[in-house]
Design a protein around this nucleic acid. Sequence first.
DNA 1: CCCACGACCTGCTGGC
DNA 2: TGCCAGCAGGTCGTGG
Length: 274
Amino acid sequence: MPELPEVETVRLSLEKQIMGETIGEVRLNRADLRVPFPPRFATRLKGRTVEGIRRRAKYLLMDISGGGVWIAHLGMTGCFHVIPKGGRRPHGAHDHMELTFKSGKRLIFSDPRRFGLMALCPREELAAHPLFSHLGPEPLDPSFNAVYLAAQLKRRKTPIKVALMDQELVVGVGNIYASEVLFEASVPPQTPAHQATAHAKEIVQAIRKVLRAALRLGGSSLRDFYDAEGQSGYFQHEFKVYGRENQPCRRCKGRIARLVQGGRSSFYCPSCQK
DNA sequence: CCCACGACCTGCTGGC
DNA sequence: TGCCAGCAGGTCGTGG
């Protein structure tokens, strides 16, 4: 569910729903997700007001009163659900955190695979936090440009598809958008990164174009992505290659191919991408 | 340093 | 119908 467009979609819906809310009860239904919840997590959230909701890479950052940041990562299957005051929702087997605001609104975090993560950090220590200190630039930030990308690609032998998913090179691009971006840039996914330096400009433009288009459509909903208000995204209908193995290329009518790189499926059009 | 690979989890799908 | 292999949006640690 969660590459940059999906995380940003969740951020927007959380902003609409829980900005300014003050946290009452916090219930954890287990001790850990991918890593343990922070020590005294519930206590440290209780009584705090949500002052801001930001995103960095695929992390959601809730600024809470008192100077702290509540960090959340959705992993593969993590979901926030906001339930209006008095609203009902059957308890799910994977509801790991249930938070009630003083207004009566509730916020549920569910995550079947538990690849998600929660952390807490003082605001001024965020940049130095181990989760953040090694992250590359935001793809929609001016610092991510052809000169930067070419310099990064130059010293890597790994396939371009794998390089684009490396959060140290650029953040927010995951398995879906890496394939879509390379189709847009007409670059085959197997190309060694250092051989793609000449295409750095096209790749930067493709990343911007694809991510912006996905953002406009509320991200991509495969099986289970919804924003905090239960709204699905629509970009999955725009996929040119992702998940389309053996189907006709929308551009040339040739067959979309699949290969495995770094243990993940890559999709591409062998005749358009060369 | 770089890279490939497995591990972490659960659930769904498709083939036999 | 039932079972099992294979696959799924991400990251991290290990070992070569």
